[in-house]
Design a binder for these strands. Sequence first.
DNA 1: AATAGAAGCGGACCATGGTCCGTTTAACCG
DNA 2: CGGTTAAACGGACCATGGTCCGCTTCTATT
Lengths: 220, 220
Amino acid sequence: MVRFYSDRAETCPTTSLCRVHDLLPMFDQPPRERSDAARNREALLAAAARLVEDHGVDAVTMDSVAAAAGVGKGTVFRRFDSREGLMAALLNRSETEWQGLVISGPPPLGPGASAIERLHAFGHSRMEVNLQHAELIRAAGRAGERSYAAVSFAAMHMRYLLGQLEVRGDLFFLATALLAPLEMVVLVQQTQVDAIPLDRVQAGWDDLVRRVVCSEVNRP
Amino acid sequence: MVRFYSDRAETCPTTSLCRVHDLLPMFDQPPRERSDAARNREALLAAAARLVEDHGVDAVTMDSVAAAAGVGKGTVFRRFDSREGLMAALLNRSETEWQGLVISGPPPLGPGASAIERLHAFGHSRMEVNLQHAELIRAAGRAGERSYAAVSFAAMHMRYLLGQLEVRGDLFFLATALLAPLEMVVLVQQTQVDAIPLDRVQAGWDDLVRRVVCSEVNRP
DNA sequence: AATAGAAGCGGACCATGGTCCGTTTAACCG
DNA sequence: CGGTTAAACGGACCATGGTCCGCTTCTATT
């Protein structure tokens, strides 16, 4: 599976890669994590994931995570900087998995379908993912809501698909504009506050896509 | 100035209105705030606004606001429920003012311009407002980012303008979709992280609007 | 004006995110 | 293997959001 970004945990995962960096200082990276640090990171992530599953996101306090992982509280902060960082790391797992599906999974989300089909599948899938992880995304705050890496991957893929469809215009903005209504806060508003069924939201998005992609503006 | 919504402070602002409620129990509302409570509310809002102006949003702690207003901390929480609530109340002032400009201010934002001109002005103005209050919006969290009242006013006005332009389709969703890229988080990403100049973002939005409004889908 | 009762008040108290620093330990080197 | 060093560790400590409850003040009523 291709990885487009990684958190600190995943930088330089093997010794051999580090050797490469020794030889190619232009790719200098922070040296690999010490083994105890890596072990603690895994233990903390596992403990946090379990706490989320068993008692919900709100039950994930830094103290409880530390206790569950059998380490001190300071260690949690050293590894993840903040509670938001911990949540973002948790999110990152499924985000990476989803990126893999987009890049090399089965169509229509993955390659093999037409660009327009992929575009629709992309939007629907993103909505589902964002709603599914709503609590976590919220708890991740700035780090999760629009973590640069995640937004940047989605925007890149969106630009790619729009390019395939020969859409003319400021693809940078159009990608952002099509992505914006897929954000968790917007979806929660629509599906929970306004009580609009998800499939109607999806149909609305499909229509928006059609308007953007089939606009006369695209024809010279 | 027309007010489309109000926080608790502004419900039943006069005695005479309360008498009306005595006669029309169908419009029952919580009774007017006690005079000391109202005084404290104003003092707290003023103190908070001043703290924001002088030392930034981060300096606004509940203790400091309480101290600056000369009341106990419990009072701050009774009036505004939470820090986010206090921030939302602060935001609400300028939001109300902005709503007034949209409804009865000078064109092209207010009435008097064509619907399409008003739509563009609306988007540009919203972007500016959202960027200007970015810190406050963030500090208001759920209460400010998409406070139902604010979103609902903007969406309503957007639907109205789209209706004037004889746009066909799910106006409910289209309004949301055009509003979504105006959200603070999206704008901050574009203008600060991606370093895109605001006028390019505005131009992109104008293009998006054109695609939506001028889509062939609208012609039967 | 007296009174009753609801509403408001204040600040002690609690929970939790986040920092700091003296101690421990893994990793590398001679 | 022993020494050196930078990194990691742990938990005491701090700041701040949020709760609670006994006391005070306002307002409506008589």
